[in-house]
Computed example of a mutant assay.
Amino acid sequence: MSKLLNNVNQRTQMAGENRLELLLFRLQNGQLYGINVFKVKKIMPCPPLTQLPYHHPHVAGVANTMDGSLPILDLLSAIQSGKVQDPRKQQVIVCEYNRKMQGFLVDRIDNIVNMEWSEILLPPKGIGHRHYLTSVTRHEGKLVEIIDVEKVISEVTPAPEDFKTQFDEDLSELKASQIPRKVLVVDDSVVARNQIKRCLEKVELEAVLLKDGLQALEHLQAMLEEGKDPYEEYLMMISDIEMPEMDGYTLTRNVKQDARMQQLFILMHSSLSGVFNESMVQKVGADRFIAKFDADELAVSVLDHFRKRSTPA
């Protein structure tokens, strides 16, 4: 596991081919879970933890590491499946989500598997709306659950959604414009979809929400079959990268390689971060990338594209 992130180039190439490497781990409930290796910075035994006053009940404590203070979250407690009794016996997966480092207590690491995104499926219908899954898959006949970590983190430390920037002048221009007011939003996390939706509504834009890349591609292709031009229907598309069935890279490449859709502006918006993103955005033809979730930055990016589109070439 110490060589987890050694071959960045190989993993970058894999990501561009609708593939991923999934780190499999278990919690004390015995269930098998998975997380994209790209989000993992390191794995380590749980260090000594300091308890902070008035901390969230899902936070096991704060660790003093070489990289600074690291909050350690009891993932078992966060998904409402129990509570870790002795953190000292746990492993910690250190990840970067939404621009912040976060440690997750896990019982043990299983292995790393190479998979296609088409093997990663949406959770089955009928399990309700309170679950913590973005997707599921199978490995060696066993069910692997992929947790909606953005939902978990948002319940512990919600991202601020109020604007610090004033957009009054932009909104006046937007109201007078004939440019489409709809934005296609593609993200497998219900929390992320709703964050983006609320952000867009504050700048008086309408969000059309879809759950994965395959749904989005089929939606756009259906529009073409009906004689509609996606560029004339949508101001832009905002797409996550990690999604079941088809990832954002593959979605973007399919859209940009189709002459009928290549004018559609695509903003990639993901909690994935790292040096590979800029090269991957260029490789698949996306127009811009920003990391989740900053309401001001997202609004500025959307309105910046609106101004460019409303200015005659």
Rank of each mutant, 00 (worst) to 15 (best):
C95Y: 02
Q262S: 13
I238S: 09
D67R: 12
Q215F: 07
L267I: 07
L171S: 04
L205W: 12
V62T: 15
L251F: 13
I196F: 10
Y54I: 15
F163Y: 15
K151H: 08
D240M: 12
H219F: 12
G103E: 03
H129C: 03
N36C: 04
D304R: 10
L143S: 06
I112F: 01
V37H: 06
E173G: 01
S189G: 07
N114P: 00
F293P: 02
E145G: 09
N7P: 06
K308V: 03
P48T: 11
M44G: 00
S69C: 05
S135P: 03
G126H: 07
H55Y: 09
Y249S: 06
K39H: 10
N254C: 11
D86M: 02
P87L: 08
E96P: 00
E155D: 11
S154G: 14
N7S: 15
S270N: 02
S239R: 04
M280N: 13
R19P: 00
P71R: 06
K39N: 11
K283A: 14
K100W: 00
E201Q: 15
N194V: 04
S118T: 11
L267Y: 10
I35C: 02
P180C: 05
G34F: 07
Q31Y: 12
E96R: 08
G34M: 08
I290L: 03
K202E: 12
L121R: 15
P230D: 06
D74G: 01
D247L: 10
P230G: 08
D296G: 02
D86N: 10
R88W: 04
V208I: 15
E96H: 03
D240F: 07
S310N: 15
I109M: 01
I153S: 05
G285V: 13
K197S: 09
